[in-house]
C-alpha cells in the first residue's frame, strides 16, 4: 500500500511537468492578455505603478514560472495521492478489469465530478474579471459544490452495485448523480461578474485553457499512474 501511494504521488508530479508545458503554451497567453487589460484599465483611475496592480509586487516571471510550476505540482501530487487510494479501494471491489481499465474509469469519473461539473456551474475567471468583495462567497460556494459532487459519487455507485445489467447500472447511477447536482446547481447562487466590456473571445479562450490544463493534468496523472503500477506495483 505504501508503494501504491508513492507511485501515485510520483505520477502526479510527473503529470505536472507535462501540464506546466500546456499551461505555458495555452494558458499564459490568455492570462497575460487579461492582465494587460486590467493594467490599462487601472491607468484611468489609479496613480500607482500599473504593472504591479495584480501581482502584489511579485514579478510576472516568478508567477508564470516557478509559481505556476509549484502550484501545478502541489495539485498534481494531491491528485496522484487520491488516485492511488481510490485505485486501492476500487480494484477487486468495485471494478474488476485490468489495472489500466480500473485507473481509466476512476480518472474519467473523477475528472467529470471534480472538474467538469463544478466548471459548468462556476467557470473560472481570468484576472480583472472577479469582484474582490464576493471572493469569500464564491470560494465557499465552489468548494461546497465540489464536496457535494464527490459525496454524491459514493452513494450513486453503491446504489447501483447490485444491478446486473451494465447499461441499467450506468443509467441509474448517472441519473442519481445528475438529479442531486442539478438540484444543488439551482439552489446555490450564481455569480455573474464579467464586465460586458471584457472581450468575449478572450474570456472563452481563458476558460477553454483552464479545461485544457485540468484535462492534461488528470489524463497524464492517470496514464503515468497506470504505467507505474503495471511496471512497479505488481506485488501490491
Amino acid at each position: 500500500m505504501t508503494r501504491l501511494l508513492v507511485l501515485g504521488l510520483l505520477a502526479g508530479l510527473l503529470a505536472s511537468v507535462v501540464t506546466f508545458g500546456v499551461a505555458r503554451l495555452v494558458g499564459e497567453p490568455a492570462l497575460d492578455a487579461a492582465i494587460a487589460m486590467e493594467t490599462t484599465d487601472s491607468h484611468t483611475h489609479a496613480t500607482d505603478t500599473p504593472d504591479l496592480s495584480d501581482t502584489g509586487g511579485m514579478s510576472r516571471h516568478l508567477q508564470a514560472g516557478p509559481g505556476l510550476f509549484v502550484g501545478l505540482a502541489a495539485v498534481g501530487v494531491a491528485l496522484g495521492g487520491i488516485l492511488a487510494i481510490s485505485f486501492a479501494v476500487a480494484r477487486g471491489r468495485i471494478l474488476h478489469g485490468s489495472t489500466r481499465a480500473t485507473v481509466a474509469w476512476i480518472t474519467a469519473l473523477g475528472f467529470a465530478a471534480v472538474i467538469v461539473v463544478p466548471m459548468l456551474k462556476f467557470p473560472g475567471n481570468p484576472p480583472a474579471v472577479g469582484n474582490p468583495e464576493t471572493i469569500g462567497a464564491r470560494t465557499l460556494a465552489y468548494f461546497a459544490f465540489l464536496a457535494l459532487s464527490l459525496a454524491t459519487l459514493g452513494p450513486a455507485v453503491s446504489a447501483v452495485k447490485g444491478i446486473a445489467s451494465r447499461r441499467r447500472k450506468m443509467l441509474i447511477g448517472a441519473g442519481i448523480y445528475a438529479g442531486v447536482m442539478s438540484g444543488a446547481a439551482i439552489l446555490l447562487p450564481s455569480f455573474h461578474e464579467v464586465d460586458p466590456a471584457f472581450p468575449r473571445d478572450l474570456l472563452w479562450q481563458f476558460r477553454a485553457s483552464t479545461l485544457a490544463v485540468q484535462a492534461t493534468l488528470w489524463a497524464s496523472t492517470g496514464i503515468a499512474f497506470g504505467w507505474l503500477v503495471e511496471r512497479f506495483g505488481q506485488s501490491i
Binding site: 494558458g27 502584489g56 509586487g57 508567477q63 509559481g67 502550484g71 475567471n125 490544463v213
Partner: peptide, 20 residues
Amino acid sequence: GTDVHEFVHDARHLLGFPCH
C-alpha cells in the same frame, strides 16, 4: 500578507479556482 496568493496566482487561475 499576499505572498502565497501571488506566488501560486497563475496556477490558481489556470486550474479554474475562484480568484480575485
